[in-house]
Design a protein around this nucleic acid. Structure first.
Lengths: 160, 160
DNA sequence: GCTCCAATGAAACAAAATTGCAAATAATCC
DNA sequence: GGATTATTTGCAATTTTGTTTCATTGGAGC
């Protein structure tokens, strides 16, 4: 399923490097080295190791949705009827497969799933609800929240 | 406030390039060029332009929270009492400033804000609620959802 | 058909990443 | 504590990648 990334012996150098890479992963190793007091090759080897260990899961460009005409961000709380392992797994893969679904979390509380959806128009969201929710007889109900402002968006994690 | 990113005249080349960069922005320009049938310099110039235009907002490493000991992801719906522009702006900057808050959206619907929070322990979340919610007399109520599984996580936007 | 403009590719160039290796550091064992 | 071993480092050389130059191509407008 999801890969384990437990202990991870990250020293203070690693953490400083991660802090930089989470802000800008195009920063030259030489510059990183200066910032953390390490040579460029040392930085390079640490980054390589952290990638292999799965500490760094990916390196991506962050694209402005509006530039692609995908100007609507929507949150959805989904509550399901049956929570058998099989049904939950089915829902997970269905949600994960939809390109409009940017993020999907399986949660405790008054809902079972929380989705972050990005679409060009409300009509697209409506079509998606028909397909994913009304067309799925294990969905009990769902609540929609439309984002008026993406105040803070990112995947940055505090380095401690 | 937030910078405008207009219509953005993105042709099919740009979109293909973005699709690749959203998956892996360390892909060599030559490789990208081969994939989209363009020379490396052409790819380089397009990427440069899209960065300047704000189409590409950032280039980052995605770090596994668990590797940093930040193993709890939490969603919070926040409902405020007064929705004056001033109060809302105050809340936005307060939420945006908290490092534990990875994402913050101002939304319509039964809540006013939706937050994505990443912390090492429940105790940290509890402390955060005291500071941000109980310590703020404009917060009417908030609902907490704890993530059991981060099914799909990313910031990828459909290019189609 | 001609000019102007923007975008392209090939080649030259610059910069950055990666590797090899000896030295330094840290850890382990007696 | 001291010797041995295993890591990790920095420097220098090498390779790969990114960037600039420049002549050419392909249109759009006239």
């Amino acid at each position: 399923m999801s890969k384990r990334v437990q202990p991870a012996h990250l020293d203070v150098f690693d953490r400083k490097i991660l802090a930089i890479l989470q802000r800008d992963n195009m920063t030259p190793q030489r510059t990183i080295g200066d910032a953390v007091n390490l040579s460029a090759p040392a930085v390079q080897r640490r980054i390589k190791r952290m990638r292999e260990e799965g500490v760094i899961r990916a390196d991506v460009s962050v694209v402005e949705p509006e530039a692609l005409g995908q100007s609507i961000t929507i949150f959805v709380e989904v509550e399901v009827i049956s929570e058998t392992a099989e049904q939950i797994e089915r829902a997970k893969s269905e949600f994960a497969a939809a390109p409009e679904i940017q993020q999907c979390y399986y949660v405790t509380g008054e809902a079972d799933f929380i989705l972050v959806i990005v679409v060009p128009l409300m009509a697209d969201y409506e079509a998606l609800t028909r397909r994913l929710f009304f067309g799925n007889n294990n969905v009990k109900r769902f609540r929609t929240f439309v984002a008026m402002d993406r105040v803070k968006v990112g995947l940055g994690v505090p380095v401690g």
